[in-house]
Amino acid sequence: MSESGPSGRAGVALHPGDLHEEHELSAIWYIAVWIALVFFTFLTWFTGKQHLGTWALFIALAIACTKSVLVALIFMHLKDSSGMTRLVFATSLVFVALLLFFTVADVATRFRPATPAGAPFGTERSQPEGLLEHEMPE
């Protein structure tokens, strides 16, 4: 698809490799990715049910990120996309990361009176007696 149209605007004809080459993956690739996604779904289901404490969130996010990379690279063809589209996608991820990092850093470093009623509650171990009957925050 590198020749100009029949309307005769020859001056803007593209050179080979000017835009990214369109080459098609075989259907086996998509099915392989689907099998991997199903595997990771059961893996996150299994590890999630174990309630692994501190590591649970890390493991769940690591598996979710792996699944997303597979979907973005193969299903969404980011593997064969131009640098521009990759840059757009990467930029959005950077800004979500900035948003999350600074917000969580703020909340995590607040002193107790500045947190909502009943928080931070922590895990079951650090749970003070009687606090469960605490008034619900609106």
Binding site: V88, V96, L100, V104, G118, P120
Partner: peptide, 24 residues
């Protein structure tokens, strides 16, 4: 799609804050 990711990013951020505050 980038704007969609940012739209959901705001909700994920809210989730992170309140999950941190109310883990139990």
């Amino acid at each position: 799609l980038a704007t969609e990711i940012l739209l959901f990013g705001g909700l994920f951020c809210g989730y992170a804050v309140y999950r941190f505050q109310f883990q139990l």
